[in-house]
Simulated scan of single mutants.
Amino acid sequence: MVHRNAPLTPEGRRRLVERCRTRPIAHVAAEMGISRATASKWVNRYRRFGELGLRDRSSAPIRQPTATPGETVAKIEIMRRERKWPAARIAFELVADDVTISRRTVTRYLDQLGLNRRRFIDPDGENNREVRKIVAKHPGHMVHLDVKKTGRIPDGGGWRAFGRGSSEAKAVARTKTRGARAGYIYLHSAIDGHTRLAYTEALENEQASTAIAFLERARDWFTQHGIVKIERIITDNGSCYRSRAFAEVLNGAEHRRTKPYTPKHNGKIERYNRILSEELLCARTWTSEAQRASALTTWNLHYNYHRPHGAHRGKPPASATPACVNNVLASYI
């Protein structure tokens, strides 16, 4: 691989060889800004190997005593293509066959073979594993919790209101340098997996005590809509959800945490966060945090009682609750 500062490319080496046919190597080397040894190297390679000698050679050593045998690499490819096993499973099976190899080594060879992604094995997806949906059987079967962290809006508006580089934005930046940081607002949300009924509050932090208090208020709010029992609570692995205090206030509900770095396992609340961001947080320019907090309360009513939802064929989430609350007036808009 030719780096960006290389004075010679394959075409430049060919021109070097042509010039050295009738002129001294030292003169041509000085003219092209390279050493005589380098020019002599390419001329000798051309005389010995022809055009192939002008190509870049691999920097790998000729002899590699600790290299993985070719038979092992072939086994890795067969296991991946035929059984579609991940690197960890392939390494486990090889170790069981008395082949010493690490998972990282298997991963590296899968990348070299072009098999590191599942879609590379079956581009049409014919033999891929079937997608398993997370389905809540009835209201209260699954309630998903999550926290969305967003920047606090300074009074008068931030750079979104006046533009970057404006005098107002610079004034806000100067207050930050003096120690008066704007900080963040934490949007705690709970959504019922069956009805998609959602409850959101803007709170000061994401500590365990805050998450516990929010869960109690969310449970009361769901009760008002006919969801009197929560059977399962789904969260990520945030510190507030892993605390012992949080486990003590579940009231008999099963607590399931998603696999680390796998937000799709809590996809309903993640999708709700995206809707919240698109339709409220980034939908307009806010001039203060109080203004946005007030709009959040209004938007919660709109989402639950008036906004059409695809899971209910265009009806709002409140229409699927046991209480069937669907007659809320739109006078709040």
Rank of each mutant, 00 (worst) to 15 (best):
L301R: 13
A87D: 12
G33C: 01
N127L: 12
K41D: 13
R13V: 10
F49C: 09
K170R: 15
E18H: 13
G165I: 00
G193V: 04
P61K: 13
G33D: 08
P123N: 03
K176P: 01
E289N: 11
D236P: 06
R14T: 07
W299I: 03
P123S: 00
A283E: 09
G12N: 06
Y199G: 02
R292D: 01
Y46F: 12
T72D: 05
S58G: 11
Y305S: 06
A169W: 00
E93D: 03
G125I: 00
A30W: 08
R257C: 10
G157I: 00
I101Y: 00
N326C: 14
E130L: 14
W85Y: 10
A247E: 13
A208D: 06
V249W: 03
N327I: 02
T66K: 13
A208N: 02
P317R: 07
C324A: 12
E216L: 14
K148L: 12
E77N: 07
R63N: 15
F49A: 11
S288Y: 04
S209E: 14
G157F: 00
Y305Q: 04
I212A: 05
T107F: 09
V249C: 08
K259G: 09
A211K: 00
S209P: 04
N116H: 14
I101M: 01
S58L: 09
M1S: 14
V17Y: 01
A161Q: 09
D97N: 10
K84S: 05
E77A: 11
L113N: 02
E216W: 15
S319C: 06
A202L: 02
L8N: 00
A320Q: 14
G157T: 00
H27E: 15
S209F: 04
S239C: 10
T175L: 15
F49Y: 11
P61V: 10
R271C: 14
G252S: 09
T258A: 09
N5F: 12
S294T: 15
G114F: 03
Q64I: 04
R117C: 03
